[in-house]
Nucleic acid binder design. Structure first.
Lengths: 263, 263
DNA sequence: TCATTTTGTCCTTTATAGTGGACATCGCTC
DNA sequence: GAGCGATGTCCACTATAAAGGACAAAATGA
């Protein structure tokens, strides 16, 4: 009722799956894979009979939600999916305003500006504006990333207790891509610190060369529903980082709802 | 096999509908309505039992494909839909290149530049760049418009015979919003003329104040899969219109595949 | 060349999900 | 307060769709 939580990847190995659930599994699998995929591979990935997959994907292709890509038997999202997504982005007031903020931030600073949020128990980039600067190690939109790998992740779990945080994040997500492990206690402390400071800076976390700066966008209740962030080279001057973070915090605050009082 | 045709609105009044078809109906209804809608209204629009709609929409909300909007019982597209759509737009090479072309065109000319295509037997705007000029009577992305109302429509049916064209377009779509009726023969002649000239200009068609300029993007087989267009005030100088159209034609040709030869 | 895997389609079976009611709550208006 | 429509939930029934094979054809590799 009040959770921002939906878990697309919740594993229930029912014997016989509902068609709608299969559709959802297919779409999520394609989003994870992030590349056109063969029907047979899709079937394997979601553990469904091939015959079922053929039947469902053909219907989705007819509807334009999926498209047969190029020459060889692979499918990916179709034009209808694009139209649905644009309808969402155009109608959602917060999203609209965030896009404008991203435009401004990227334009003024030449850094890559991103809008990030939770999807299930992962972090995803929802929108990006690539700065005109050369530096560009950017996560693709929609790709799920373990929460502890990110600065934004340290803000988005703001409202949870230490126990809830550790319960929310899968064990294995604390292992960074380079093999290092984020200590649970350190992570919880990071979150508290980020909350106190109203923003977060991480250096060389998800990869060795990037510094991520993030500030929270909050709803009336004070819960962080999204973050604005910058991606800059790790060797940027500390003063510059501080200055960029301040800019993020300012923008994010403008995008936040007034805490409970008026209305 | 070789048709760009999918008819989202094909009316089959089956007694008992498949869940997946219901999902497609729901998504298309929301796209048509283009606004958050109450479950009961959705049920009426697609002719489904309310109980079914509650069950399906709740599942789609869990998956993030739909979202409960604001306070009062309405639903609309959700964040997952946005992510799917971005995945499509980022992965589709033609779409990527078209976006860049739109950016350039809108930037250089200050006019509103659009990417248009067919969806079933209607015309839709797939993407837009609003020019910095004040003039802005823009169709929303994804909203279906009768083909005869548009300049692009006169290019997108290029490859059909007169009979096929008239068979493809619903009778009632020839009636313009102001009550005038586009003569079938005139329309077919318009298409031939547009094909010969490699572009199309319409004045005051879908509304009294706008002039639409369009040029076709073709695949290997020479079929127009999309169009680039400009929206300008109807009283713009003819030389300007001509100049803008030439620019469109040039860009559209660069985006077109080489006609069958190499490869 | 033959062996092996993958692909796309088709068919039968049976668990199940979409129906179409009923029902209790609301929020209206008169 | 009565009358009315809309809302959200629940339940039993049965048409149907997901399943799980089988099959031919195409692709792959040895």
């Amino acid at each position: 009722m009040d959770a921002i939580i939906n878990r697309p990847g919740s594993k229930r190995a029912r014997e016989r799956q509902n068609g709608i659930d299969r559709v959802i599994e297919i779409l999520d699998a394609l989003l994870r894979t992030h590349t056109p995929t063969k029907i047979g591979d899709l079937a394997k990935q979601i553990g469904a009979p091939r015959s079922t997959l053929y039947s469902i994907t053909n219907r989705l292709i007819d509807a334009g939600i999926l498209e047969a890509v190029g020459d060889e038997g692979t499918v990916y999202f179709g034009q209808a999916a694009h139209l649905y997504g644009r309808a969402y982005a155009d109608a959602n007031p917060l999203h609209r305003r965030c896009r404008e903020a991203l435009d401004r931030l990227a334009m003024q600073t030449n850094a890559t500006a991103q809008l990030c949020a939770l999807r299930g128990n992962k972090y995803v980039v929802v929108d990006t504006r690539d700065g005109s600067g050369v530096f560009r190690i950017t996560t693709d939109i929609g790709v799920e990333v373990p929460i502890p790998w990110t600065a934004s992740g340290r803000l988005l779990l703001d409202h949870l207790s230490a126990a809830e945080i550790l319960d929310f994040i899968p064990e294995e997500d604390f292992k960074l891509p380079d093999g290092r492990v984020v200590e649970a206690n350190t992570f919880v402390a990071d979150i508290a610190k980020a909350r106190a400071e109203g923003g977060c800076i991480t250096n060389g976390l998800s990869d060795r060369f990037t510094c991520c700066l993030a500030a929270p966008i909050r709803d009336r209740r004070g819960i962080a529903v999204a973050t604005l962030c910058f991606i800059v080279p790790i060797d940027s001057a500390p003063e510059l980082k501080r200055q960029l973070l301040d800019r993020l915090i300012e923008s994010a605050q403008e995008l936040s709802d007034r805490p409970v009082s008026s209305q």
